[in-house]
Amino acid sequence: MTIDWTHFTPWAALAGGALLGVASAAFILVNGRILGISGILGGLLIPRRSDASWRVFFLLGLILAPTSLSLLAPELLSAPRIDAGNATIVAAGILVGLGTRYGSGCTSGHGVCGLSRLSPRSLVATLAFMASGFATVYLIRHVLA
């Protein structure tokens, strides 16, 4: 195993991660909700549900994060590197949408909130999507490439 020291950013990762933890803790304590993005977004797509407004306000905050941060602290922003072509992006999006709803959660709901409330179910989910992510990247970069 070789470490990519040039891209390794432990302090930004810890600081950003702590903010994710603050938001997740605040959401359950203040609003009584689990901060799981796929569940919050997916719940909007079920027409029979009548709890759209809290989902919309949360998602609005999320979507306005880049604009607000660029005004407050632009030095904290970096340009994303997106190598995937459009066809790969579409395939990936469909898999993520389908998989997170079928598995009842993603990196936030299972990964952060689930592990934090010591849920065995979320631990299994997190191990499964991490393993699958590792395997997919291995296949693409080291087998098929």
Partner: peptide, 11 residues
Amino acid sequence: GSLTFGAGWGL
């Protein structure tokens, strides 16, 4: 579901 999500995440 989680395996499917992970595949999309890795793609």
